[in-house]
């Protein structure tokens, strides 16, 4: 059997060169004897090839014929959707991208290939300042959807959510998608790693961005304010012992300090919407922190601890 790369290359060349869409029958006769003769086997082999080309990023446009060929499908590849336009990147810009990848995604094969396409090389060592970027399969499609303003749908906490994504936010080591949840009719924040299965993009629809236009401002940056079921914002009051006080003050800022006690400990107020995140934050201090208010959240925290004894 001929090497599959050969048939794929020939198919690619044919669909790029043709001036009009070709039917599977025409494709098979052009690529003499490279596809099986039997209809069903031929269709299956062609579908596999289409999927392989799609996997490497080649978009095959499909057209349904009318007239006396009604119902037949025609295929071709638009050269403009195939070729990378000249981006006009200078050498130092390509090198800066290489350094950025080395500092954030040192082992990314995909990043290396992208650099090679742009005329650079992969590899290299990041500088003394680095950030590890978590990787999730849903991120690329979500980013495209944000940039092109297409709604997406995905399963989340057991339900299908339809969302107009406004932006992706990396905070505290987690990627979040923020957008307008069409089912709930309100803004919602989703942990991208909690999206279940595939994210579907609705390319036929373009949504309006939020009215204030500033996506950055629309994204909450405080982890205590993130969560998929965003209730009204509430305020917690927490007592922090002296030996952790300075850490907390640095994290939340001195304007959140309600009382500075004589023993060096502090009482602080914290806005929150996500009770789980608040409980986790408080328990992270072990016996160096005590949640004082709200009373209902304090009661639930005590129950939580009793269950853990």
């Amino acid at each position: 059997m001929a090497d599959r790369v050969e048939r794929l290359t020939n198919l690619l060349a044919l669909l790029l060169e043709t001036r009009r869409p070709l039917t599977l029958h025409e494709i098979a006769s052009e690529l003499e004897s490279q596809y099986p003769d039997a209809g069903q086997a031929r269709r299956a082999a062609f579908e596999r090839d289409k999927a392989a080309l799609r996997e490497i990023g080649v978009k095959i446009s499909t057209e349904t014929f009318g007239g006396d060929r009604a119902g037949e499908m025609g295929y071709r590849i638009e050269r403009s959707s195939f070729e990378l336009p000249d981006l006009g990147l200078t050498d130092d810009e390509v090198r800066a991208l290489q350094v950025a990848l080395a500092a954030t995604r040192p082992d990314s094969v995909i990043g290396e290939e992208a650099l090679l396409k742009l005329g650079g090389v992969g590899g290299g060592v990041g500088g003394p300042i680095r950030m590890h970027l978590p990787e999730l399969p849903a991120l690329p499609i979500l980013r495209s959807a944000v940039a092109q303003r297409h709604p997406v749908s995905f399963r989340y906490s057991g339900n299908v959510r339809k969302v107009e994504p406004w932006g992706l936010l990396l905070r505290d080591g987690f990627w979040y998608a923020v957008g307008f949840d069409q089912n709930r009719g309100a803004r919602r924040t989703f942990r991208v790693d909690r999206c279940e299965g595939e994210v579907a993009i609705d390319s036929a629809v373009v949504f309006e961005p939020p009215a204030d236009g500033d996506l950055g401002a629309a994204l909450p940056t405080n982890p205590l304010l993130l969560g998929d079921e965003v209730a009204a914002e509430r305020e917690a009051v927490v007592h922090i012992s002296a030996r952790r006080g300075w850490l907390v003050e640095r994290e939340i800022g001195s304007e959140r300090i309600l009382v500075r006690h004589d023993d060096g400990s502090i009482t602080i107020r914290l806005p929150f919407t996500n009770e789980d995140a608040l409980r986790s934050w408080v328990l992270g201090f072990l016996d160096d922190a005590e949640l004082l208010e709200p009373a209902d959240v304090r009661d639930r925290l005590i129950e939580w601890l009793k269950a853990a004894v």
Binding site: G57, E83, A100, A103, T104, S108, A114, R143
Partner: peptide, 25 residues
């Protein structure tokens, strides 16, 4: 004669790495 367009995944890789690196001191 020209490389294939950047795929969705490649675009993410470059832009995310770049945006993150832009926020490094």
């Amino acid at each position: 004669t020209r490389p294939l367009r950047l795929s969705e995944v490649e675009a993410f890789e470059l832009l995310a790495a770049g945006r993150a690196a832009m926020q490094l001191p």
